[in-house]
Design a binder for these strands. Structure first.
Lengths: 257, 257
DNA sequence: CGACCTTTTGATTGGCGTCAAAATCTGTGG
DNA sequence: CCACAGATTTTGACGCCAATCAAAAGGTCG
């Protein structure tokens, strides 16, 4: 499973804009001076090679993380060995916080592409909440919003139509990527870098890679998308949204992206 | 949709054990004296007739609730009109808290049987967190645990086998009910009161009522369960757990039941 | 260049949806 | 207490979507 191991990044960014704490959604919008005390909490950045796990379900990770770069997958493994991807983590996402349930955290996270994460020590997180209780309410809200998205996936994932599921997922990932406003979105041809395999897509929507392929081929033939060489180009977004019952408000309303 | 309306209960319990606040998971284990201040927050109990909504998605409910009695369903409605039940709410469950996302709360709740809920004013909840910040972290943990269960549903719901999905759901509801230790569980014949329809089951696992029926009939024929007249009797739990890949730790680890 | 991963395509099978109708249960009013 | 209407359960026939098995073609990396 874990062919490679996580490494401490050789050249961590230390400038103010690149400060890990500033990028964490938890602290967004909080005045700089009130975050002074977080400085000594800043930790390493880690490089996570593809197919490497950041943490595994049923463990208790030592850190919580913010994803800086790359695509990761939050997933659970069923007893039959099937991998259900719960959510694709994109740059900016917050990973690894979860209540200390007896069985540890309930999902695993591993890298789909080479990724860079920033770690924040979990035990210091607890001290932090004691000292700054308002952050806890913010965290409750974040958890709550995340759950809303999870419920959305449950609802939209239960549609029995492969075309709808896949159209929805493509648009979700397209909008989340575009919102980042970085090099992963190319405005010239309305495309994004799409580094995951058709099997990853299948594990997210509950279909086999074979059937995912058939649907993607049909979307291509019908002139809705182009999908080659780790690039996804959205040609007819309106029709795709119709097929997938997709409403971009879902993305806009989610501050965790 | 809403044939009847919610009514204020005529004879609210006011004894200490029945105090609404004491029953809320949020306050569990907190010394009585520290809850003195909550007394003036106690509000009405409401009677919710079957098929009546407690609140609807995209609204912002005025109260948060604790379910005292009855079965309710948390659900979302897709654009095609299909109802996806996210979770059955059983006595003791906490309902209605969610971050103030722009679109309001993301799910609806309505009664499957006549239910009694205790309301706690939402706006006072905010004051409460300001005054007693430790409650916020507890809430974050509750939300987080709830999300873990939601993810479980997503994973186990994606199994492509109707038998597994239904076996899992039956055992989940059986264990959650039994854990309440009230009259809804009958230890003599290992049965629970099971007041929901086969269509409700179908909306929860993403199957039609027709197919749910076929599976239940097969389980009965194979001597795994008996299911008549709003009663569910578990005969061969081991085999059922095998079929449903069910692990009761999931229930035990969830303090929201 | 060769091993491995990913994509693509075809043939076959089975599970579950859909439609339809009968049987049973539940609740309401006379 | 009975009668009746509506809801729920049960059963059968049929069709389609997606899984499965298999194999070839293209891509990628050492």
């Amino acid at each position: 499973m874990n062919k490679k191991s996580i490494q401490i990044r050789q050249e961590p960014h230390t400038s103010c804009d690149q400060c890990p704490v500033r990028k964490m959604t938890l602290f967004r919008g909080i005045p700089e001076q009130q975050l002074e005390w977080t400085k000594h909490y800043r930790q390493h950045q880690f490089v996570v090679p593809p197919k490497t796990s950041l943490y595994l379900e049923h463990t208790k990770p030592d850190y919580v993380y913010t994803l800086f770069n790359g695509w990761m997958a939050m997933y659970q493994t069923s007893q039959t060995g099937k991998r259900q991807i719960l959510r694709f983590a994109l740059p900016g996402d917050f990973l690894g916080f979860q209540a200390d349930g007896r069985g540890g955290i309930s999902h695993s996270v591993s890298a789909l592409t080479e990724s860079i994460v920033c770690g924040f020590p979990r035990d210091q997180l607890k001290n932090m909440f004691d000292e700054h209780p308002k952050l806890a309410l913010r965290l409750a809200n974040m958890e709550s919003r995340d759950m809303a998205l999870c419920q959305q996936h449950q609802t939209f994932g239960s549609r029995k139509d492969a075309h709808a599921s896949i159209a929805f997922l493509l648009l979700e990932l397209f909008h989340r990527t575009r919102k980042q406003m970085n090099k992963n979105y190319n405005a010239d041809d309305n495309s994004i870098i799409f580094p995951i395999t058709q099997e990853d897509v299948g594990d997210a929507v509950g279909l086999t890679n074979v059937h995912v392929n058939r649907v993607l081929r049909k979307f291509t033939k019908d002139g809705l998308i182009e999908c080659h060489h780790r690039k996804l180009k959205i040609i007819d977004e309106i029709k795709l949204a119709e097929i997938g019952e997709f409403n971009s408000d879902i993305i806009a309303g989610n501050p965790l992206i």
